[in-house]
Design a protein around this nucleic acid. Structure first.
Length: 421
RNA sequence: GGGAGCGUAGCUCAGCCUGGGAGAGCACCGCGCUGUGGACGCGGGGGUCGCGGGUUCAAGUCCCGUCGCUCCUCCCA
């Protein structure tokens, strides 16, 4: 057996995990700030859940989804995204019956079988929100405001970000627009790449975000979805834009933004970084007003977004180099001699019970070595030598300033915080 | 899915072109200093040279294959 991880799977080691924990905490706290509550979902679902919602013809389902039979032959999938699961849970547990807007968030691993590269693994991590139950454009605006706020909160500047925005209309508009695209692109079929010639039949919307140079000419003059919106959808979008302006959130209308998932309706958006290359989207989302009904629930509109943790970590560590690791311990015990060590084990257990992060050397290192480890790991060293111990005292050394003081052990153990800053 | 580059010590990498000693820096351990860290000096441990095959008297070095990572493209988070 080869001792190595599976392709596309990655270990996040303690040094990096610190940043992940910080980010996850920020994300959770901003989500709560907006009234979203966590939902924890299974990583495994029926494969059909995704093929029906995300779309059979999408890249995600068609070539990137991990699908396999379980022992009974049932087709299961490792989730490639979480919105479908959220909606499944929403219907399964009758959350709509509460008659209120359901504001939910999640954070966790997703799986897509892709060619791995930096910032894109086969197991990756997404955080996201979903608000189910309202068609109010103010809710679209809230979700977008949340996205901006979150990015700023984790340390990205407004100037380094931009919002791509579009509306692709409702299920009444879509066939009209689709036909418009189909007839437009049919006229110049020979100019399109092979993929796009196929897309022309399957889903002409997808031609719009094709990056092939040869397709660009044709795409530039393509009909825009905004010109095919019904009255209601147009009003919805106008209202959203107006609220965004009131909130001072800038946007760039991008008629080519269609996104890679079939369930979207009306509003679609991506919040992107100016500092990333081709993979510049930090998070993306939009409305999915037909999704609940599609899965057998009552007609219920929804809006949300999902962002990638890996990409966020990438941008953040790109900006500022990983700051020198601060000592994670309050106290490092430095016993001297056998007697000191016995005593150290007792003190260790006591301090930990008092909530003081404490550790000691288990490697049999020399005193100087233990001191150097102490300096790296902790703010204070507590030296336990026979001389002091015989008088019931210990020596506390501040490893930052280098000053030390001798103090009675019972007094220190009674209120250790009085001696630690 | 298509194209390119790179895999040598825990880490960063040199060595490969022009085949013959497996190396440097950092990290780690010990000693100078057996009761006190960050400096310095001296010494030490650690490598299936990604893996498999081929060429050769001889392969880290040349050839083929394979796996992995990285970059571009694609896709998207």
């Amino acid at each position: 057996m080869k001792v190595e991880s599976v392709r596309g799977m990655r270990d996040i080691l303690p040094e990096e995990a610190g940043l992940w924990q910080k980010l996850e905490n920020e994300i959770r706290s901003v989500f709560s700030l907006y009234g979203y509550r966590e939902i924890r979902l299974p990583l495994l679902e029926l494969a059909e859940l995704f093929s029906r919602t995300v779309g059979e013809a999408t890249d995600i389902v068609h070539k990137e989804m991990y699908v396999f039979p379980d022992k009974k032959g049932q087709m299961l999938a490792l989730r490639p995204e979480a919105t479908a699961s959220v909606v499944r849970a929403y219907i399964e547990h009758g959350l709509y019956a509460k008659g209120d807007l359901a504001k939910l968030y999640y954070i966790g691993p997703m799986f897509r079988y892709e060619k791995p590269q930096r910032g894109r693994q086969r197991q990756f991590h997404q955080y996201g929100v979903e608000a189910l139950g309202s068609l109010d454009p103010a809710l679209d605006a809230e979700v977008i405001d949340l996205a901006w706020h979150l990015m700023e909160r984790v340390g990205l500047s407004r100037e380094g970000l931009f919002l791509r925005l579009n509306s692709i209309g409702c299920r009444e508009d879509r066939p009209l627009y689709r036909e418009a695209l189909r007839s437009y692109f049919s006229g110049q079929k020979e100019k399109l790449c092979l993929d796009c010639q196929r897309r022309l039949e399957e889903n002409p919307l997808r031609i719009l975000d094709c990056k092939e140079p040869q397709c660009q000419g044709a795409i530039t003059g393509a009909p825009k979805s905004l010109d095919y919106l019904c009255e209601k959808c147009r009003e919805h979008f106008e209202e959203l834009l107006s609220i965004l302006r009131d909130l001072g959130l800038s946007y760039e209308l991008d008629p080519r933004l269609v996104r890679g998932i079939d369930y979207y309706t009306r509003t679609v958006f991506e919040l992107c970084s100016r500092e990333l290359g081709a993979q510049d989207a930090l998070l993306g989302g939009g409305r999915y007003d037909d999704l609940v009904e599609l899965l057998g629930g009552p007609p219920t509109p929804g809006v949300g977004f999902a962002g990638g943790m890996e990409r966020l970590v990438l941008v953040l560590s790109q900006n500022r180099p990983v700051d020198a690791e601060a000592p994670d311990l309050d106290v490092y015990l430095v016993p001297i001699g056998e007697e000191g060590r016995r005593k150290a084990l007792e003190i260790l257990a006591s301090l930990r019970r008092l909530g003081i992060a404490t550790d000691l050397d288990y490697m049999g290192r020399s005193l100087r070595k233990v001191m150097s480890v102490a300096a790296r790991r902790a703010r204070y060293a507590l030296l336990l030598g026979p001389d002091e111990l015989s008088q019931g005292k210990v020596n506390l050394k501040d490893l930052r300033s280098g000053t030390s003081s001798t103090l009675p052990l019972p007094e220190f153990l009674a209120r250790p915080r009085d001696f630690l800053s």
